[in-house]
Amino acid sequence: MTGHLNIYGVYVPMLLVAMLAAYLVKSLLGTLLQRLGFYRWVWHPPLFNLALYVMVLGVLFNLCARLAS
């Protein structure tokens, strides 16, 4: 996934777009897991949230790479 996204003449790295999308998806998943009571079983919620973000970012990065080729 190389390249940039042109938004009205401003070039934005695709990685930044993927990171913002991953943050939004992670926030939605975190809210859903909080309402379901999943965090009662998690030892360290901030560490779990970081791992969840990294996993979502990896999935989005792979999806974007497959769609670009």
Rank of each mutant, 00 (worst) to 15 (best):
L47A: 13
P45G: 07
M19E: 15
L15H: 01
G3L: 01
V42M: 02
L5K: 09
A18D: 13
L50V: 14
K26H: 09
W43F: 14
Y23D: 08
V10C: 00
F38A: 03
L28C: 10
L47C: 03
L36I: 06
A65T: 07
L36C: 05
P46N: 04
S69M: 02
W43C: 06
L32H: 06
V12Y: 08
M1S: 13
A18Q: 10
R40G: 12
M1V: 12
M14K: 15
G9M: 03
P46L: 05
R66W: 15
G30L: 01
A68I: 10
L57V: 12
Y53C: 01
L15K: 02
R35A: 08
Y8G: 06
L28N: 07
L33W: 05
Y39G: 00
P45F: 04
L20F: 10
M55E: 10
T2Y: 05
V10D: 14
I7P: 11
A51H: 08
L20P: 07
T31P: 01
M1T: 09
V42D: 02
P45Y: 00
R66N: 06
L50D: 04
L32N: 01
M19P: 05
A18Y: 01
V56R: 05
S69F: 11
C64T: 11
C64Y: 12
S27I: 08
R66Y: 12
A65Q: 03
Y11Q: 15
L36M: 12
A21V: 15
L24F: 07
V25K: 02
A51C: 10
C64Q: 14
L24Y: 06
L16S: 15
T2H: 00
K26S: 14
Q34D: 12
A68G: 06
L63F: 09
Y53P: 03
M1F: 05
V42H: 05
W43M: 10
L28W: 12
T2V: 10
F61P: 00
L57A: 15
L57H: 09
A18S: 13
Y39L: 05
A68N: 04
N49T: 05
C64R: 11
G58M: 02
V12L: 14
L63S: 09
Y39F: 15
L52Q: 02
A18P: 04
G58L: 00
V56L: 04
F48V: 07
L20C: 04
H4Q: 07
F61M: 14
Y11K: 14
